[in-house]
Amino acid sequence: MTTTPGAVPGATDGDAAPSAARPASLSPSRAGDFMQCPLLYRFRVIDKLPEKPSAAATRGTLVHAVLERLFDHPAQERTAPRAKALVPGQWQRLLEAKPELAELFPEGDGGAELARWLTEAEALVERWFTLEDPTRLEPVEREFFVETELDSGLRLRGIIDRVDVAPSGEVRIVDYKTGKAPRPQYAEGALFQMKFYALVVWRLKQVVPRRLQLVYLGSGEVLTYDPVVADLERVERKLLALWEAIREATETGDWRPRPTKLCGWCDHQAVCPEFGGTPPPYPLAVVPRQGAQGGEPGAVRPAQS
């Protein structure tokens, strides 16, 4: 019997709660969730448990919006003062889309905390001008949604901050980060997202991007990497192994927590066994495993390089 990736064999739509969803595709962020903690992946993708917005993440969204909108202006007008002037308007647009973001800031301080937060966002925007010159850039795409299906049936998707194409046809993928650049020993993890995007572009356009570029506004650094076909083939194998582990966990309902230092920032401690909580009832049909070998259910199997 052939099954769709992420589907539970033998189950019908009526077997699952209306709010539940079987994984149907993989993005860099969701792949990162599963590698960090399979139970976190379940909470976000299958249970869709709510999470509180954070000031740091919202600031990142704001800065991304400003840098995207700056390219609406002619090249000579892409200046730091113009970019900073976009911050209040883009913040208002975020508030209109998500009024709950106003709860990030106390009401009784006369707007002091919000003003400080907006100033921090402006500083990140201004720092970008020390790293790139937007007057010399004409992005082909901004906030570019990409999606492709591999031969295996795995669907990959994501949003690329910026795509530049040189007159020679060479492609550069750029991603803005509002945090600090990682230490060299952790650079590979940071580049995973970019290699994911490069794989999608390669499969879509049959072109290997010439350069992957991470722009860290928090520390004023730029991390670059020039991929080759062998890199992207390794990433594809890793993603296929990851997806197989996700499918196995989906079918068995066995999603193991993986404690790390990041647990302290998790919104789901109340329902996590590592903190004495109980996960909500699993909303999908479960297929018992028979004669399984090679590791614990839900565990990520090592990818072959």
Rank of each mutant, 00 (worst) to 15 (best):
Thr2Phe: 13
Gly6Asp: 10
Gly10Trp: 07
Ala11Asp: 00
Ala20Gly: 05
Ala24Leu: 03
Ser25Tyr: 09
Ser29Asp: 07
Gln36Tyr: 11
Arg42Ile: 09
Val45His: 01
Glu51Asn: 05
Glu51Thr: 09
Pro53Phe: 02
Ala55Asp: 07
Ala56Ser: 07
Ala57Lys: 06
Arg59Glu: 08
Thr61Pro: 02
Arg69Leu: 06
His73Asn: 03
Gln76Ile: 05
Pro81Lys: 13
Ala83Glu: 09
Lys84Ala: 14
Lys84Phe: 15
Gln90Trp: 06
Ala102Tyr: 05
Pro106Thr: 05
Pro106Cys: 10
Gly110Ala: 03
Arg116Leu: 14
Glu120Pro: 02
Glu122Cys: 14
Glu126Gly: 02
Phe129Glu: 09
Thr130Asp: 15
Leu131Tyr: 11
Asp133Cys: 07
Thr135Gln: 14
Pro139Cys: 11
Arg142His: 01
Arg142Val: 00
Phe145Ala: 12
Val146Tyr: 07
Thr148Cys: 08
Thr148Tyr: 00
Pro167Lys: 06
Gly169Pro: 01
Arg172Glu: 11
Val174Leu: 09
Asp175Gln: 02
Gly179Ser: 02
Pro184Asp: 01
Tyr186Ser: 07
Tyr186Val: 10
Gly189Trp: 14
Gln193Pro: 09
Lys195His: 15
Tyr197Phe: 12
Leu204Asn: 15
Leu204Tyr: 03
Val207Trp: 14
Val208Ser: 11
Arg210Lys: 13
Arg210Glu: 13
Leu212Ile: 06
Leu212His: 15
Leu212Cys: 14
Leu217Arg: 10
Val229Lys: 12
Ala230Asp: 10
Glu233Cys: 10
Arg234Ala: 12
Lys238Ile: 04
Leu240Ile: 07
Ala241Trp: 07
Trp243Lys: 01
Glu244Gln: 13
Arg247Met: 12
Thr250Arg: 11
Glu251Trp: 11
Thr252Asn: 01
Thr260Asn: 02
Thr260Tyr: 03
Lys261Pro: 04
Gln269Ile: 04
Gln269His: 04
Val271Thr: 00
Cys272Phe: 01
Pro280Val: 00
Leu284Glu: 02
Ala285Cys: 01
Ala285Gly: 04
Val286Ala: 10
Val286Ile: 13
Val287Ile: 15
Arg289Phe: 12
Gln290Ser: 08
Gln290Trp: 14
Gly294Ser: 13
Glu296Gly: 15
Glu296Val: 15
